[in-house]
């Protein structure tokens, strides 16, 4: 145990993602010939320091969930690298990856489908501990009880089945399972989207408490802007497989530089009826198909400020310090 206390890395970010790409071939017709590619993730780079939270926002189809799975090596990237605790994960064999996996876990959106309905909760929490031989015998039982208590559930619940819990409790179990192996990094993929607002707040508080107590690092993928802002130190905005803006969360949401970030913020419904949208600043249209992303800047087809150059030349992610934007004509 105590995996989060060791110091095998000195300095350097916990997670480094460089030019990460995932292209899926599209086959069609009678002979299933390759007829194109979906560029789900198309050249994403960022750093994430230990103990911090990077929030990732973007519409469905922006590639944010695929990116989470690539980082955890649940899918092999087409190109690019993922460095975790100073070690390059891409190219490792499954055998080499196995000890690394204890340090990287995931919490899913739907706790209903990510738990086994036929197994007692205690067995599901104990299984990874046994498989990875962290503990044996009675010590496993003790750890399971401890895990349930850490996430705010009674230790007696270990003998119950998933259907006996509410949605919020099930998500707590999902978090307990992610914690079972003392990970350093947890990818949270829409962890509160399926829950009632009052329960969302409970889970967000829990995630924040756990981060403080255990020194966890989160990659928090979500589309609820308020929740992402609340939990994140930094926020990255994705659009059609690209990171279009990244920076300190207060600065990014306070004064966004990319027109897409600004559009997302303008779409967020107000916190009070006094702040209802007056001018209609609603972003038009759907996100284009990643099978045929627009040339140049991928956002130019929906951008209110698009110029001729935006349709031909692809902008690169640049900027001074930690606030970076990929736009030819940033807002400021």
């Amino acid at each position: 145990m105590g995996g989060h206390h060791d110091s095998e890395r000195n300095g350097g970010p916990l997670l480094k993602v460089d030019g990460l790409k995932k292209h899926y071939p599209v086959r069609s017709g009678l002979f299933g010939r390759n007829t194109g590619q979906v560029k789900a993730v198309d050249g994403v780079s960022f750093r994430l320091e230990q103990g911090r939270t990077l929030g990732i926002i973007g519409e469905s189809g922006s590639g944010k969930s695929t990116m989470g799975r690539l980082i955890l090596q649940l899918e092999k990237p087409t190109e690019g690298g993922v460095t975790f605790q100073g070690r390059e994960l891409t190219g490792m064999t499954e055998r080499q990856l196995r000890p690394m996996r204890t340090d990287m876990q995931i919490v899913f959106q739907d706790p209903y489908s990510s738990l086994n309905p036929r197994k007692r909760v205690g067995d599901q929490l104990g299984e990874p501990i046994r498989v990875h031989r962290l503990l044996e015998g009675a010590a496993v039982e003790k750890r399971v009880q401890e895990l349930l208590e850490i996430v705010g559930l009674s230790g007696h619940y270990r003998n119950r089945f998933p259907h006996e819990f509410s949605g919020g409790q099930r998500q707590r179990i999902g978090i307990a399972r992610a914690l079972a192996l003392n990970p350093k990094l947890i990818v949270c993929d829409e962890p509160v989207s399926a829950l009632d607002v009052s329960i969302q707040a409970q889970i967000l508080n829990l995630l924040k408490d756990l981060q403080g107590e255990l020194g966890l690092t989160y990659l928090f993928i979500a589309h609820g802007l308020g929740a992402v802002d609340y939990i994140s130190d930094e926020i990255g905005v994705m659009y059609l497989g690209k990171l279009v803006e990244i920076g300190d969360s207060a600065r990014l949401f306070g004064s966004p530089r990319h027109p897409y970030t600004a559009a997302l913020l303008a779409s967020n419904p107000p916190g009070s009826p006094h702040d209802r949208r007056r001018e209609e600043s609603v972003l038009q249209g759907d996100i284009p198909s990643p099978l045929h992303p627009p040339a140049g800047c991928r956002f130019h087809t929906r951008c209110p400020y698009a110029q001729k150059r935006c349709g031909t030349e692809e902008p690169v992610l640049t900027g001074e310090g930690s606030h970076k934007v990929a736009c030819h004509y940033p807002l400021h």
Binding site: S198, G226, A250, G271
Partner: peptide
């Protein structure tokens, strides 16, 4: 209980 953007982080 709703986290609002830019308030009380």
């Amino acid at each position: 209980c709703i986290p609002q953007i830019g308030s009380g982080k």
